[in-house]
Design a protein around this nucleic acid. Structure first.
Lengths: 233, 233
DNA sequence: GACATCTGCTTGTCTGACAAGTGTCGCGCC
DNA sequence: GGCGCGACACTTGTCAGACAAGCAGATGTC
């Protein structure tokens, strides 16, 4: 069985353009072919080219300027740009998401401080150490995985299975919302600290301390994202 | 100095569509207006609409299917799907379930007291009245449906979509233990009262009152269920 | 030399047309 | 009555051509 889903022409154009950039050796910031040239080279209409360009633009791979032309995006800021545009389009859902987390997680941390056993703490300490290592080496993707695992580990330590499964649902299926926070400058290092605070409180069975540390952690993250968002506009 | 950058029409269309989704009350998975209808409503050409749609599609907010139409993406629903099915298959954890609800719902009630508009309140009052009627006639099955709808209506009034979807996942897959609680003598009548308390507080925009009323409601329900379960064994 | 204008290129938007996918309704057959 | 099939309406996908609007360099005038 081959290729069930029919692909849109504009999607093929995206791939074709990406390939062109590589094959024809375009570099960051360079001027690319014009829309008209592209219709000639790819033999598709300008509409399809333009739909493809909108997608390439919003994913931060090109930048299009009226009267001037199409430019290959700056690869330095490419990842950052991509994140920014995503952020702009998902502002509300991030806020919603954080609000819910601010409700659930502090209580989860409190419960974890009460119910965590030695195994839970050992596991979380391992995750935390790895997170710190990835943060030091600026391995953001890997650090994000550790972030998920830390929060899930905490939920597991509550010994409330509903809470654990819920937390897992919130972390594994909304990668972007979590990723977003860690891409903001400085956030990742602070997260190491804040996770450390939470962990220490849980270890000491300090319920109020754990709850407060988690509240601070989430509030800080939300604050950084919001500020970052304001800077963009 | 205002507005340096010139805005592309398709970008305005994105905002307009997002606003429409909210204002006209479209829900996840629902069919949206067709491209043709949008040209009429927004008074811009199909090209601009389509460019906007490509962006909304790639940022995961709508999904467009040839021959069928434009659909509001159901990312949130997908998110908690696994969680829902887990809940359904693990009804032994009623206590865990309640603990989580005791964390979430009082805060949800508080938020509802802050954000509910006239429509939300009217809808909830309707549900409440019907619940009371069913309770009077001892139509328990129907009353249970109203119970779900009341809690979902409250979550919706928070205007937080994540919370709403989460609550829906939790109420629609209620374990039988919960349902059976409404069969315990007196519980259903008391629920009518307790829901009334919550509703009144929300209406008065009394945040603390709503939070407390919800906490009482859930605590009472848990108490009765626990007693009911103990009586069974 | 300084400035305004012209000109040709670019992207932005609109229009009308036809292709292609999807679901529905009703007709005719069994 | 039930079933199958085709006509039809409605949807998105793609195209071609036109004009508006922004930009930059060439040209002409003073």
């Amino acid at each position: 069985m081959s290729q069930i889903k029919k692909i849109r022409l504009s999607e093929s154009v995206i791939d074709a353009i990406k390939e062109m950039v590589v094959k024809d050796g375009f570099r960051s910031g360079e001027k690319f072919y014009s829309e008209k040239e592209l219709t000639g080279k790819l033999q598709v209409s300008r509409s399809s080219i333009r739909e493809a360009l909108r997608i390439l633009e919003v994913t931060g791979q090109v930048s299009v300027k009226q009267g001037k032309g199409i430019y290959i995006a700056d690869t330095q800021g490419e990842r950052f740009k991509e994140f920014s545009s995503w952020l702009k389009n998902n502002e509300q859902s991030i806020r919603d998401n954080f609000e819910v987390r601010l409700i659930i997680e502090p209580k989860a941390a409190r419960s974890a401080a009460e119910n965590a056993d030695a195994g839970d703490i050992q596991q979380m300490e391992g995750v935390w150490a790895q997170f710190a290592a990835y943060a030091r080496d600026h391995k953001i993707e890997e650090a994000i995985v550790c972030d998920h695992r830390f929060h899930c580990g905490l939920a597991r330590a509550t010994k409330n299975r509903t809470l654990y499964v819920l937390m897992k649902a919130m972390t594994t299926t909304l990668p972007n919302g979590w990723i977003s926070s860690l891409y903001t400058p400085g956030r990742i290092d602070q997260t190491v600290h804040e996770h450390g605070d939470i962990l220490r409180a849980v270890k000491k069975q300090d319920k109020a301390g754990a709850e407060n540390a988690m509240t601070r952690h989430l509030a800080n993250a939300l604050h950084d994202i919001t500020k970052h968002l304001d800077d963009l506009t």
